[in-house]
């Protein structure tokens, strides 16, 4: 637990390096919701294979690292299906309407000192914190 922040920092640098490769190499902003969402609504079909290659890397790399990482992996995912479906819908709708999520607005936006990225990040963190306060501490359902 005490060394979690070191893993967080190392992982964070890897995430940012990925974003740097995507930006400097392909000239694109590495936003997970944009890369996925463009495939869903058809707006990104002109760059279909780039998106598929990116997502393939995202899915496969944890499987490669898994045997090297001698810590039990547990996602602690909730088993409440109503919460899962509601959360998934909210994340899908919200990220596409805001045109970005934690990677696009958070990582790529803040590092550019973009007002959009900073404002979006403040609002999604506040909204997330409010949900924890209400649903964990008041209603005690998550």
């Amino acid at each position: 637990m005490q060394i979690d922040w070191i893993w967080g920092l190392i992982g964070g640098v890897l995430i940012g390096t990925g974003g740097a490769v995507y930006l400097l190499g392909n000239g694109r902003i590495m936003g997970a919701s944009g890369i996925i969402g463009g495939l869903v609504d058809g707006s990104g079909w002109s760059t279909l294979w780039e998106r598929v290659a990116f997502l393939f890397g995202v899915v496969v790399m944890p499987l490669i690292l898994w045997p090297l990482y001698n810590v039990d992996i547990d996602t602690h995912m909730t088993s409440n299906w109503v919460v899962i479906v509601a959360a998934g819908l909210l994340v899908g709708i919200g990220t596409r309407i805001a045109n970005g999520c934690t990677s696009g607005h958070g990582v790529c936006g803040i590092s550019r000192f973009s007002l959009r990225g900073i404002v979006a990040t403040v609002f999604y963190i506040l909204a997330g914190g409010l949900m924890l306060a209400i649903f964990r501490h008041v209603l005690e359902v998550i």
């Binding site: 995202v58 899915v59 998934g88 909210l90 709708i93 919200g94 805001a98 909204a127 997330g128 949900m131």
Partner: peptide, 29 residues
């Protein structure tokens, strides 16, 4: 859109603890 979308996203993010990147990265486990 930026504000409303971010609030909706944050609500879902808080409820499940997942955003789009990790949702894809963790799909096999």
């Amino acid at each position: 859109r930026l504000i409303t979308g971010s609030v909706l996203f944050g609500m879902g993010w808080g409820l499940a603890g997942l955003c789009p990147g990790p949702a894809v990265a963790s799909i096999t486990y």
